[in-house]
Each structure stands twice: as structure tokens, then as C-alpha cells.
């Protein structure tokens, strides 16, 4: 076994004086004194040039081009940016990355995987305030994917769905609104707020079509039609559709959330007390009706 610098240094320290407060020095060059450079003519104009608005700190307004039509006024209308601030974004997560997370034990494939569990790995992040609405599972690594998972994402294309079903898993696409996402990005912090778990809102009109589509395995689609589409995809991509009914993990694979549910096993309206390890459930009729609707 060779010795590296740390080992050599620790050996040297046995014979050197005790390291104490009087012995310390910063690394050379890390601390430079803020001394004003005194060049020819004593520094002169401090980088402000000679006369004019520059030296007199009396600048023209930002964007002004000394009279000609400025850039920011030249173009009256740019329709290709219309509504860009309202468009939903789904940051990508490749199937290869998902496979790595499962193989490295960051994600537990024996339990249903949803956005919360992917965020809890710490390796994939969502910023809901930047209009990011969830996971977009991409098809990079679809050819090597072999993990049997029950996964819930926010956006998936046909090859991705085929790859997961070929491996014997189940994929669902589901929508989460902004309030639900804020609760999901840091579930621990959300519970510490002492606020009841909110109801998940329905998708906006332009997204309902996607999430009600059985070809996209939407959570609002008819389960019978979804099983039909599973067969269709198996025939299209040329693999034998595994029978999940005979799978010992059938219960785990078919575990699904209610459209109004954010977390598995926890109903909207409940307050989770992490300190006393207790769940508070409302018994008021009105509240129960509201949260059950």
C-alpha cells in the first residue's frame, strides 16, 4: 500500500510542533489586501474615461441608441412567445437514469414509484414556481430497461410505455397541480407546516385530453381500455405481454392513487404530526364531504 500526501503529512506532524492558534497561516495567495493600485498619475480617472456622460455619471436611459430606432422598439409583435410563461414544463428523466436509481438502491422497486420517491433520491429536482409540473420519462435506455416497476410519471411517450410494460411493470401518467407539487417536493417540510393534505386538482382543459387517453395510460382513462391498449402495444413493438395477474407482486403493481390523492395511503384533509407520530383526521361533516368529493 503506497502512501499519499495525507498520510505523509500526518507522519510529519508527529515530529513537528503542536498545531495551535499561533501556528496557523492561510494558503498562499488566498488573502490579498485591497490596496488601490497607484500607477502613473496616481490612478487618474478611475476607469471613467474623459469628460462626457461617462465621467459625469449622467448616462442615457437603458436601450437608447442615440436617436435611431432602438432594438427593443423595432419589433412590434412576437407571437411565437405568446403564452410561453404559462406553458407547462416537464423536465426529462431518462429511462437509463431511472434504471441506475433502481439498481443503486436509491429507488425501491418493490414499492410503487411516484414523483415523491423520485424527488426524495435528491438526484432529480422540480421547481414548481418555474412552471415545472413533473417527470417526463424519456426513451434513452429503453432498450436495456429490465426492472419491473409500478411507476407514476407526468408525461410519457409510446416507446417508454412499451419498454416498461415489456419488463412486466405498470406505468401511469398523472397530473399534479401547483399546491400538490409544493407539498411533494419536500414532504417533511410540508408536514411540519401542520396544514391538512390538500385535494389534488383536476388538470386544466388543455391537459385533460392527455390524462384521459388510454394510449398514454392517463389516470383518468378507463382501466378496461388501458388493458386493451397494453395488448395493442405488445403487438406493435413485438414482445410478449407479461401477465401481471399471475405475478406475485400483483397487489403492488396495481396500487393506484385516487385522482384527488397526493400521497399513497394518505387521504386529503389529514394532518400528519411527525413529532408525536400521529395522524389527525377531520370528523366534521362538511369537511368530510369536501375532501371526499
Amino acid at each position: 500500500m503506497g502512501s499519499n500526501t495525507a498520510e505523509k503529512a500526518l507522519q510529519m506532524l508527529k515530529f513537528l510542533p503542536r498545531v495551535c492558534l499561533a501556528n496557523l497561516k492561510p494558503s498562499p495567495g488566498s488573502r490579498t489586501s485591497k490596496k488601490r493600485g497607484r500607477g502613473q498619475h496616481g490612478g487618474d480617472k478611475h476607469g471613467a474615461g474623459n469628460k462626457g456622460s461617462g465621467q459625469r455619471q449622467n448616462y442615457m436611459r437603458l436601450g437608447y441608441e442615440t436617436g435611431n430606432n432602438p432594438f427593443y422598439l423595432r419589433f412590434p409583435h412576437e407571437p411565437y412567445y405568446q403564452g410561453h410563461h404559462l406553458r407547462r414544463e416537464y423536465p426529462p428523466l431518462s429511462m437509463l437514469d431511472l434504471l441506475k436509481l433502481i439498481e443503486m438502491n436509491r429507488l425501491d422497486a418493490s414499492k410503487p414509484i411516484d414523483l415523491v420517491s423520485i424527488l426524495n433520491t435528491g438526484l432529480y429536482k422540480i421547481f414548481p414556481d418555474q412552471r415545472q409540473y413533473g417527470v417526463n420519462l424519456t426513451d434513452e435506455g429503453a432498450d436495456v430497461f429490465n426492472a419491473k416497476v409500478n411507476i407514476e410519471v407526468q408525461w410519457a411517450t409510446e416507446p417508454v410505455i412499451a419498454a416498461i410494460e415489456r419488463a412486466g411493470g405498470v406505468i401511469t401518467t398523472a397530473y399534479y397541480d401547483q399546491h400538490s407539487l409544493q407539498a411533494m417536493i419536500n414532504a417533511k417540510k410540508f408536514f411540519e407546516r401542520g396544514v391538512p393534505i390538500p385535494r389534488r386538482m383536476m388538470p386544466p382543459p388543455d391537459a385533460i385530453e392527455y390524462y384521459a387517453d388510454p394510449t398514454k395510460r392517463g389516470y383518468l382513462a378507463d382501466p378496461e381500455k388501458i388493458s386493451e391498449e397494453r395488448l395493442v402495444l405488445a403487438q406493435k413493438y413485438g414482445y410478449e405481454l407479461p401477465q401481471i395477474e399471475k405475478d406475485p407482486e400483483y397487489e403492488m403493481l396495481t396500487e393506484r392513487k385516487d385522482p384527488r390523492q397526493i400521497f399513497y395511503g394518505l387521504h386529503p384533509g389529514w394532518v400528519v404530526n411527525l413529532k408525536d407520530k400521529v395522524i389527525l383526521k377531520p370528523q366534521d361533516e362538511e369537511l368530510e364531504r369536501y375532501y371526499a368529493s
Binding site: 408536514f191 400521497f263 399513497y264 395511503g265 394518505l266 394532518v271 400528519v272 411527525l274 407520530k277 400521529v278 395522524i279 389527525l280 383526521k281 377531520p282 370528523q283 366534521d284
Partner: peptide
């Protein structure tokens, strides 16, 4: 409201 201590539900938390 009621305070419940169910180990099955706590597993989900």
C-alpha cells in the same frame, strides 16, 4: 377531529 395512531398508515408516512 380525531387523533389516530395506526402503524399501517404510518408506514405510508
Amino acid at each position: 377531529y380525531e387523533t389516530t395512531k395506526n402503524p399501517e398508515e404510518w408506514k405510508y408516512v
